[in-house]
């Protein structure tokens, strides 16, 4: 599948989800199970990306202090907990990674 096909199908399906209830107002409702599932989608999907990106930097598990990404991610989590803001979190995490990289 070419990237164009992927974007076209992914885009059409995304549009279909945005259009669904607007188009069919009153004809059907969000199934209760789906409604309940939706609030777990962002934390589940995002964590499923974050954990390997942080804990498996070279395609294998690295829990030690030698894993700079793990330490930098810990800094980012602390900043996110304190500020609840996106940009400070990204800036702090990137700065921590680059500093660790330069120092060790």
């Amino acid at each position: 599948m070419s990237v164009w096909t992927i974007f076209l199908i992914g885009g059409l399906l995304t549009f279909a989800m945005r259009f669904s209830f607007i188009y069919a107002f009153g004809r059907f409702r969000v199934p209760p199970a789906l409604h309940r599932a939706l609030r777990f989608v962002p934390p589940a999907v995002l964590s499923a990306i974050v954990f390997p990106a942080v804990l498996m930097p070279d395609d294998r598990l690295a829990f030690g202090l030698g894993n700079h990404r793990l330490l930098a991610a810990a800094v980012a989590v602390l900043v996110a907990l304190r500020t609840r803001k996106t940009l400070p979190t990204i800036v702090a995490g990137m700065a921590a990674l680059l500093l660790l990289q330069a120092a060790f």
Partner: peptide, 18 residues
């Protein structure tokens, strides 16, 4: 510059408040 690390950081920023 390790720009790829911006992705997990972005997602950490999005997931922690939830």
């Amino acid at each position: 510059w390790r720009l790829d690390f911006a992705l997990p950081l972005t997602f950490i920023a999005m997931v922690v408040p939830t």
